[in-house]
Amino acid sequence: MVNENAGRILGLDYRKIANQTIPYVAAVGAAFLAAGIFIALMGFDALKAYNTILFTSFKTTNGMVQTLLKFVPLVLQALAFTVPFAAGKFNIGGEGQLIVGAIGATGAGIIFSDLPAVLLLPLVILSGALFGAIWAAIPAWLLYRFNMNEILTTVLMNFISFSLIDYVATKVWRDPAAGHPTTIPIGQGGQLPLLISSPPLHAGLLIAIFVAVVIYIYTDKTSAGYELIATGANPKASRVYGINVPRIFILSLVLGGVLAGLSGAIEVSGSHHRLIEGLQSNYLLLGLIIGLIAKGNNLAVPFVALFIAILEVGASAMQRTMMIPGEMVFIVEALILVFVLLSDVVRRR
C-alpha cells in the first residue's frame, strides 16, 4: 500500500512542494489583483505602485538594508507566535514581550554601561530574552494554575507593558533632551556590531537567522519538538501517551516570550541604542500574519517574513513617491492571509 516513490525526482517530492506552493502564489496574485482594483479606483497607477512595492528593496543598497532590518523583528515576532502555536497555544503577547525585553536590555545596558563589549553585549541580549520570558511566564502560570485562557492574558499583558515603557522612558532613565519619551542611551559596549557601516546593518540579522535555524531544528528534528507538535495536534492523546502536556504548554509560551524579548533586545542594541516609546511598531500584527500565512510551519516563516519585509519597505517608498497611503500594503498583506486561508477551504472541497 506504500507508494514511496510516487512524484519524486532527485529525492524531492515535487508534487508535494507544488501542492504547497501553488496556493500561496495564487493567494498573493489574487490579493494584489484585488488591492490593485482599489488603487486604480483611488485614481493611482496600480502597476507603478506595485513596481514600487515589490522592487524598492532590490533597487538600492539602502532598500536592501532597510528590508533586512525589518526582517529581523518580523521573523522573531512570527516565531514567538508559531512556537506556542505548534503546541496549540496562542501567544498574542509578542508586543508586550518585545517591550519588556527591550526594557530589560536597556536597563542592563544603562546600569552596566561601563562594562566592555564582550560582557555587556551578551548581557544586554540575554537580559532582553529573560525579561521577555518572564513577561510570557505570567500568562503561562495563570494558564497552568487557574486554567485562564492564554489568548486573553497575553493580550492584556501588552497593555501593562505600554504603561511600563512609558514609566521607564519618562521617569526612570528619561533623556531630558528628547521630545518624545526616550531613555538615555545604553553603554557603547552594549551595541550590536555593524555588518555594513553605510547604510548601517547590525549583526542582529545573524542572530535572527541563527535563531530561526535553531527553532526549525528544534521543532522538526528533536524529540522535544515532537512532543510540542503532538501536544498541538491532540493534547488529550499526548497525555494518554505519556507527554507532560501542562509542561509543554508552559514551555512553549515561555519560549515564545524569549523570542519576542530577543526581538526587543535587538531593536535596542542594534537599531536605537536606547529605549523609545513606540519601538514595537506594528510587529506583533505582522508577526501574526506571517505565522498564519506560514500556517505555523517554522521552515516557511523566515521566507514569508522576508516577503512581508519587502512589502513593508516598498510600502514606505510608495507612500513617499506616489502619495498612496502605506496602509494599502497592510490591506494587501491581510488579503494574502485571507486568500491563503480560503485556498485551504477550496482544497478541502
Binding site: 503532538a230 498541538g232 491532540n234 488529550k236 499526548s238 501517551y241
Partner: peptide, 17 residues
C-alpha cells in the same frame, strides 16, 4: 480523542509514546 494526531503525519502517529 485519545490516540490520534490528526494534523501530524502517519509516521509521527506511529511513534507516539
Amino acid at each position: 480523542q485519545d490516540g490520534y494526531l490528526p494534523t501530524a503525519t502517519v509516521a509521527q502517529n506511529l511513534i507516539l509514546g
